[in-house]
Amino acid sequence: MDTATLEARFQARIDADERIEPKDWMPDAYRKALIRQMSQHAHSEIVGMLPEGNWITRAPTLKRKAILMAKVQDEGGHGAYLYSATETLGITRETLIEELLSGAAKYSSIFNYPTPTWADIGAIGWLVDGAAIMNQIPLCRCSYGPYARAMVRICKEESFHQRQGFDILLQLSRGTEAQRAMAQGALDRWWWPSLMMFGPPDADSKHSAQSMRWKVKRFSNDELRQRFIEFTVPQAQFLGLAVPQGEIDWNEFHEVLKGHGPCNHERLAARRRAHESGRWVREAALAYAGKQRDRERDQHREAV
């Protein structure tokens, strides 16, 4: 069968809302686009552990500390689900991680912003995870089976993240003047970057049209961004916080994307350091397992 026929059949399956599974025929461009999107998503989960990990040792109470640890563990888990789903497309996790560490692969720009106060942890949960949920719920129905299934699992867990973030800000907003100011400061810092998480305006989004045809994406960037604003503004009002007024600075978005955000260098350096200092552990575990297998084989031989 020639490629044109295969492609027509593939698109017909997508149009009929069928799911594509790993061993099914798929166009190279579809495979590549998914690897790009899913691995970026996985990297974002892993890098996303860093700004929050920053506050584990300084969480205000033991309860908050236990919750934050659980959340950061979830992010690691989400990275693992997504690397696992990406590997079904015929690429190894090792290659994906190399691409992250070399800077060849991207991750969500939002994690290149710092978390100077405890309230930032609240704002990340409420706004950043809130925006992520808005982006991710439609992905539960995306055309690639393993991605859709991973997203179902992730969305369930993100809901806890968003609520715990709101809960942090709720408590601060009911506190002292200084605590209220801290909550407002965090909203001021995270509002615009959160809105940027939905990607460039529809007119400038170069992957959108094809992604919609493949039913990987189901709503436009601007549609989701608008929905997020409509959900979030009344929640800010409930907290007694003022939503920043103005417009998105797309220049800032492009600068952070290019690597000139406040923490790009620090984040990648932290990942590289973790990868390098964990290398001996990974190698030792592999060597130990090999030795155990040899030993079992020898014992088996002696017994025979």
Binding site: G77, A80, A85, R93, A150, A285, Q292
Partner: peptide, 21 residues
């Protein structure tokens, strides 16, 4: 889903940590 591990025992522990939190 799937999980990377050096042997079956580690796979079991990692599967528990990743998929049954």
């Amino acid at each position: 889903g799937s999980i990377h591990a050096v042997d079956a025992r580690m796979a079991m522990e990692h599967a528990r940590d990743v998929y049954t939190r």
